[in-house]
Amino acid sequence: MTGADIVLEAVGEPNRRRLLELLHLHQESTVSELVDASGLNQPQVSKHLKVLATAMLVAVRADGRHRHYRLDGTGLQVAHDWFASFEDVWQSRFDTLDELVSTQPNPIPAEEQLP
C-alpha cells in the first residue's frame, strides 16, 4: 500500500472520521476523553487511534501515565491532495465536455437516435 492508500483507508471508516472531528474540536484528548465524547468503547477508540497514527493522521504526546492525542497534518495533507486530484479530473472532464457541446451542435436529430 502507498501512503495515500493507508491514509484513505484510515479515513474511510465513519468512526475514525468522528474521532478526527473530535480531535479537531478539542485540540488534544486522551483516550478516555474520546471514549466519553464519541460513545465508542475504549478498545474501539484505541484500535482506531492506532490506525490513525499509522496513517500519520494523529500524533501522540506522552505525559506521565497519560497519552494525549492530537491531529497530525501530515496524513491530512496526503488525503487533501488525493481528493483534490479527484475533483481536478472532473473539472477537466467537464470543461472539455462543455467545449465540445458548445462548439459542436447535435449532428443527428434526437428523434433519429431513438430506437
Binding site: V11, G12, L71, L76, H80
Partner: peptide, 23 residues
C-alpha cells in the same frame, strides 16, 4: 468498493482538512 468509499469519506471532514492544511 473501498477506494470510492474513501473518496467520499474524506470529504465529510473536508472543511476541517482545508482549515488545517492551509494553516
Amino acid at each position: 468498493t473501498f477506494m470510492e468509499q474513501s473518496a467520499a469519506g474524506l470529504t465529510s471532514s473536508l472543511n476541517t482538512m482545508d482549515e488545517l492544511v492551509s494553516a
